[in-house]
Design a protein around this nucleic acid. Structure first.
Lengths: 181, 181
DNA sequence: ACCTGAACACCGTTCAAGT
DNA sequence: ACCTGAACACCGTTCAAGT
């Protein structure tokens, strides 16, 4: 029976996890799906579009489970932790997510969840956006470097500890700069 | 007269700035240097080695000028601002720097400058390293996203403002978490 | 609707041979 | 010491033609 777009996407995700982003080629993907390269272009218009679909699927996972009720700091922490662990769950996940050419709808939702956490704590819109952007830049920068190099040096629990410590420093900055001013 | 390694490096940097990282191929570089592709491999053992040399040159620029005497917060700010502006000075600079396979010696010096700024303010070694890593992750994450997408949407002065605002929030976090505890 | 066959215009890398 | 010529093993993409 014929391939559907979802099969191509699933195959691409599996191949990503097995060989990494640099070895994820259209030809290897076609092989794995038992099809000729050209066939892929019936399902996706370009490799870029396929990678964007992968990014979307990964970012979707970040909000798959609802965020537990808690104070603003706990919500920010949970959102950041989840973004990191979702990217770490896929080989080269951070680099892939950083490379999107079409911003996934779920990325907007994610960013909005950060902004909302701060808004409900009384932070004005413009400041809440700054805080959300700061948190996102840190999380992505940390995870990108971690996945590219640190993961080969330090064990996961050590890296978790470091991430949480730095995250707390950052959240304290948001507290004194945006909440208590 | 024959090509020297420095010529290849300069040519690569110029090509990077003209066409970007994705179009920086060994063949285009060879064309620009008036040489056949294979000749490059006499000067650099691989494209990866050449890219690492580019990264090194960019990171070197970050500390080309001495850091002005000032308090720890001012020093951290200046170091972060300089890292960002140096990466922005080259097309795809942030993505290139994030991709290094051999950590440049100057990157160690840069990181140490961050750590030292905190150490002289009385922060213990381990905490100083956390703060330096936090600052680095943020700066790289911010600039990577900025250069990849935001630069096409917002003018430079608007992005400068945003970076400085977020940087201050982060530095306040370091202040209350690592200095005043 | 979905895929093959075959091509096009590229890549990075190697290496004997030339000067 | 530095480079050419030529090849090898790949890429992403297109598209007429097949089923």
């Amino acid at each position: 029976m014929p391939l559907r777009q979802a099969d191509v996407l699933r195959g691409a995700m599996e191949l990503l996890d097995e060989v990494g982003l640099d070895e994820l080629t259209t030809r290897r993907l076609a092989d794995r799906l038992g099809v000729r390269v050209g066939a892929l272009y019936w399902h996706y218009p370009s490799k870029t579009a396929l990678l964007d679909a992968l990014v979307e699927r990964i970012v979707d996972e970040m909000l798959a489970e609802p965020i537990a009720e808690q104070d603003w700091a706990g919500r920010l922490r949970e959102l950041a932790v989840r973004a990191r662990s979702t990217m770490l769950a896929h080989r080269d996940g951070a680099r892939l997510v950083a490379s999107f050419s079409v911003l996934p709808a779920s990325a907007v939702t994610y960013f909005q969840a950060l902004v909302d956490s701060l808004r409900t704590a009384g932070v004005p819109e413009r400041d809440a956006e700054l805080g959300a952007d700061l948190l996102t830049s840190f999380t992505n920068g940390f995870t990108l470097e971690e996945q590219a190099r640190q993961a080969k040096i330090w064990p996961r629990d050590r890296r978790d500890e470091t991430f949480l410590s730095e995250l707390d420093i950052l959240i304290n900055g948001i507290r004194v700069s945006l909440l208590e001013k």
